[in-house]
Write a protein that binds this DNA or RNA. Sequence first.
DNA 1: ATTGACATTGAACGTGCGTTCAACGAGTTT
DNA 2: AAACTCGTTGAACGCACGTTCAATGTCAAT
Lengths: 220, 220
Amino acid sequence: MPGRKAPESVRRDQILLAAYRVAARDRLGGLTIRAVATEAGVSAGLLLFHFESKDGLLIDLLDWMLSHTIVAGEFHQRAPAGMPPIAWLLSIVERDLAHLLKQQERVELFYDYWVLGTRHPVIRRLIRRALHRYRDAFRPAAHAIIASHPERYANLTADDLAGVCAAFIEGCATQTILDPSRFNAERAMVTLQALIMPPDAPSLIQTSSVAHVASHVTYP
Amino acid sequence: MPGRKAPESVRRDQILLAAYRVAARDRLGGLTIRAVATEAGVSAGLLLFHFESKDGLLIDLLDWMLSHTIVAGEFHQRAPAGMPPIAWLLSIVERDLAHLLKQQERVELFYDYWVLGTRHPVIRRLIRRALHRYRDAFRPAAHAIIASHPERYANLTADDLAGVCAAFIEGCATQTILDPSRFNAERAMVTLQALIMPPDAPSLIQTSSVAHVASHVTYP
DNA sequence: ATTGACATTGAACGTGCGTTCAACGAGTTT
DNA sequence: AAACTCGTTGAACGCACGTTCAATGTCAAT
């Protein structure tokens, strides 16, 4: 029955939320206009009245997802007091990794978009920007590391270091999604730490859970 | 005009090759039965005569891709004479990374399959096995590292170490595909080396090209 | 030659999709 | 109360896809 009006912004949010629910359940392959419309309790025609095309819906949904988490929250410009820079960086990596594992379904969706982006310029741009922001989250800590051992890291830039951290996390995400039973985030963190920490440094990782992050560990 | 016969295996190979050409050009999204049939110069009906369904074609194509490269070739059980274990591991990482960059189109396809695998059990199994083989390529070197510094890497297994290497490469692949202009494999290698090598170790990376691998560097 | 097995085709079927659109009705304006 | 705006619907269109199938030709066996 036509006529029941709702303000534009309310309808859009209602449809976007329905789109997210459908995508979280059936992935992008199952995200059809009709499915979203049904989930939102409106007609397919109305959906295309508010989002001019499916492409528009996809892009707006990705925008919405990228602004509602995916990338871990606030990132700090300075290390917690007394924490060495390398430990700081590791704690950020660990926090992000834990964050990733907690929203696996969202990460899977993100990868769907990522594959879509290989063909779709607008989506590609959005994802690229998101990954750049991701990398940026590591830069302050990376910069601090380089500044703290200028002789050792003489030929590195903060961007290089941040990029390697981002690559590590993205690779962990790949393994988690494909083979969750075999990938162990805690082991990955312990290994990473053993690789890059000076041999005599104290351990940062609490072996009980990845979620208990190194930022809570105090330093002598 | 019906009748022109060809032996089963020849036709299958001809169609598989056509499928690969289509997929390399248009990705999995553009891989339709009709497109492959046209590329192979046969009818769509014939394609389904030889591959019982599109699913079968997809799986056989993935099988074919996984056996024709993707994963870098022979992996050695022992380090080149005189090369320290860490340098050996780095040289393998570097070789794989270079290999990856040279077949970007194939890697993109692989990621298409990877996303498909999130929904498709058979494909998931194939990809999982391929990634496990990938990880295995690092295990001998990882084992050598742990054996060479047992005190430092006391609580690590070769599998942990191999997994982190695999994650690093997979993350690099992610960045390369999404943002090739910004990702610099050489910088990534230099950074990785600076992170995990003891400060006074000699450089392994030839700055001119990632392809000139560290395995050619001789050690004092 | 005749037969039979089978590779091959082209047309067709059914389905699900994105999209369009005429009709309709609730609010608002005049 | 008449006119107008615009959110809303449901049916329909057209297309591309995976798949089926009767018809047809080739080849080998008899």
